[in-house]
């Protein structure tokens, strides 16, 4: 790892100010992606601004039909939260299957979505549940936040501070994890929401997380796994790599979507 200068931010404002003064700062949260990337010398920020001790970015609250999760909340806390388990069990289950237990103890919601790995789980939760991403300067719908492979709408220095999830009438997430990395080969969040049926797919698309409109239409008229029997997924839009071809992933999306609907 190249040299870097570490700063522990006391508040969101302090973090933004410290980052703005640095040459090339990166925000550090759980560090479960950033630190491995730095160790491989694929990233070399001059300064690291640690967000993990900022109290205002921690914690989970439920008010009415909305679950608000601080961006600094680790996956294990989301998975273990009785509030999340009661309000959106699909979200608690999704968080409980990210990586492995030690990764879940450190990795955070904000860190995951700010990185927007095309095989990460949380982007499917945010898009599928129609979440609102709250930053230190504005609020964005999930659909406007995720912009492709490792790309988001975040401006230079902007910090994700919380995510608000509207409680769906029902939802479930099914993923086929890569057996080595535990990242999704295909992960599908299906939800019946106030905004209609939403289907969000991660791990499979060649442009990151996406909504599967044909599945949404089919499930909108008939909420059952059978309704998906004739819905296909275009392999031209899928990722292809050493772990699986585009055709394989296109098929896997259908299988995961059916499993999700059956367990919702």
């Amino acid at each position: 790892m190249f040299d870097t200068t570490y700063h522990r931010a006391a508040s969101v404002a302090d973090a933004a100010e410290t980052a703005a003064k640095a040459d090339d700062a990166a925000y550090l949260s759980g560090g479960q992606t950033l630190l491995p990337t730095m160790k491989q010398r694929l990233a070399s920020p001059s300064d690291l601004v640690d967000l993990s001790q900022i109290a205002e970015m921690q914690g989970i609250s439920v008010a009415g039909d909305t679950v608000t999760i601080g961006a600094g909340t680790p996956h294990a806390d989301v998975a273990g939260s009785t509030d999340v388990q009661n309000a959106i069990p699909a979200l608690a289950a999704l968080a409980g299957n990210i990586g492995d237990p030690a990764v879940r103890a450190r990795g955070t919601l904000g860190g995951s979505i700010a990185n927007n790995d095309p095989a990460a789980d949380y982007p499917a939760a945010c898009l599928g549940l129609n979440a609102t991403i709250v930053t230190n300067t504005r609020e964005l719908a999930a659909a406007d936040f995720f912009e492709g492979l490792f790309e988001t709408a975040l401006e230079e220095g902007e910090i994700v501070t919380a995510v608000r999830f509207p409680v769906p009438s029902r939802a479930a997430y099914a993923k086929f994890p890569n057996p080595a990395s535990r990242y999704a080969m295909a992960g599908v969040m299906v939800a019946q929401t106030g905004d209609g049926v939403r289907v969000a797919v991660t791990g499979a698309g060649n442009d990151g997380v996406f909504r599967h409109e044909a599945m949404e239409a089919a499930l909108g008229t008939n909420w059952s796994a059978d309704a998906l029997a004739d819905v296909s997924t275009d392999a031209d839009d899928m990722l292809s790599d050493m772990h699986g071809s585009a055709e394989y992933r296109a098929h896997l999306v259908g299988v995961m979507a059916k499993r999700a609907v059956e367990s919702a």
């Binding site: 560090g31 630190l35 690291l48 990764v103």
Partner: peptide
């Protein structure tokens, strides 16, 4: 329980 190879001492 955390992975100490993926945590900065300073943090």
């Amino acid at each position: 329980a955390i992975k100490s190879c993926t945590t900065l001492a300073a943090s």
